[in-house]
């Protein structure tokens, strides 16, 4: 594997406990997938809770969904899908040894994450303005809620979208990290493990939003 060092930039050295680069790549990826399982189970707990209480209080959940603007969720869905595409393209361009295009793709991905968070910011502040807070903090009189336990719906809403939002911010930070490493010349078609791992994380953020959008905004 002496040909590995023909690429410009920082060469990646395979850690000594791996047989070769491929062994390292496959091991890292398996670790990422195990991590993804914990993500599915963490969000899954919230989804299960939502389903159960939605079945117990269908009218209250329907009232809660009325306070959400599907257009905001719709725009954010389009933004996240587009960001997933640019993330995938970032890896594609590294596989093709085109780091400049990869940098542009990753930068667009971060920008999309930022747009998503700005839309979320406006959604949250609008709700705070109306007195819509999670659980007991919800101002039933000010909101004019038909159901006294409407705070439960917004408990789910803030926990689920909030945890998702934290993931978007984390993902943006991780993409920024691999963006700088791409500029530094760390990655090429032989070694891009970190970008692949961050990519899988970013796609799971998209994946969770794909279910949150109909659950919160459309069906209610």
């Amino acid at each position: 594997m002496s040909t590995d060092s023909t690429h410009a930039g920082h060469d990646h050295h395979v850690a000594h406990h791996f047989r070769n680069a491929e062994h390292e790549y496959l091991t890292s990826k398996e670790g990422i997938w195990l991590f993804m399982v914990t993500e599915i189970l963490m969000f899954g707990g919230l989804f299960v809770g939502y389903s159960i209480f939605h079945n117990i209080y269908p009218e209250m959940f329907a009232e809660g969904a009325k306070y959400l603007d599907w257009k905001m969720g719709f725009i954010n869905t389009l933004v996240l899908i587009f960001s997933s595409l640019t993330m995938a393209l970032g890896i594609y361009f590294l596989q093709k040894n085109q780091p400049k295009k990869a940098v542009v793709s990753l930068a667009i991905t971060i920008l999309c994450g930022a747009i998503f968070m700005v839309v979320k910011y406006f959604e949250y502040t609008h709700k705070f303005h109306l007195g819509i807070f999670p659980g007991r903090l919800l101002d039933v009189a000010k909101v004019g809620a038909e159901h006294a336990n409407l705070g439960m719906y917004f408990g789910f809403y803030y926990c689920m979208t909030g945890l998702h939002g934290i993931h978007v911010l984390l993902g943006m930070s991780l993409i920024t990290w691999v963006l700088f490493r791409t500029i530094r010349g760390d990655f090429n078609s032989n070694y891009y493990t970190a970008v692949e791992g961050v990519g899988i994380f970013w796609h799971i953020v998209d994946l969770i939003w794909i279910f949150l959008f109909p659950l919160l905004y459309l069906v209610g």
């Binding site: 692949e196 796609h203 998209d206 794909i210």
Partner: peptide
């Protein structure tokens, strides 16, 4: 979700 998992997540 299946589209994202199969192609974007490889």
């Amino acid at each position: 979700a299946v589209l994202v998992m199969l192609w974007f997540m490889h």
